[in-house]
Amino acid sequence: MSKKKSFVAACIPLGALLLIFMSLAIAGHLIAVQSSSQRKNISVENNPGQAGWGETSPMNNDLRRRIVNLSPRELYIVMDTANNILYLKKGEQTIRKCVISCGSGNILSEPGGGRKWIFDTPKGEFFVKSKIREPYWIKPDWAFIEEGKDVPKDAKDRVEADFLGEYALGFGDGYFIHGTLYTRLLGRNVTHGCIRVGDEDLRELYMAASIGTKIFIF
């Protein structure tokens, strides 16, 4: 009998807790339902006094036109860094699709706790700032640190030929679209942030792009 009593006594606070919990959950549901009914009216509430159909449609069409006018008229480049694909496009048409290599996302820290580099390909909107034939690579500090070598004082010691392929397209802050010796790594994220492209694709890109060509990277 006493066992039964103690069981009932233990159940009471548990039941009370469950009741509170359920009440709160029901209250939450009711608030959510009320909010979702507000959502249906949000656009109307935000624009009191707006007239109907025929009057707002031309306005929307005008807005649409203004958005379209912001898109590039000429060729542009789109790069998908997740899938390592580059698209050369004009309007909605894809002119060329190339397999590329983008940034590895790795981190390099200077021994002794100095500088730190994150090898990401930048995302956003850029444009072609330079076009170079037979480019030389001016090795930055991180390239020497990565190799465990001392950073040279003489600028001549930084120059490396035949490393970036036949062409390079610069898009700012030391980032380039260039060739590669490691074509088997195309399609993988292995670079220090630059975009590596195969020889034939690079030639096509170089010929098609001009200074100012828009680049969108995501």
Binding site: S43, V44, N47, A51, W53, T56, S57, N60
Partner: peptide, 18 residues
């Protein structure tokens, strides 16, 4: 009334996108 509401919310979207 319904299409006006649709137009309004679409206008808001287009303005924000612009």
């Amino acid at each position: 009334g319904y299409s006006s509401a649709l137009n309004d919310s679409e206008r808001l979207l287009l303005e924000s996108e612009l």
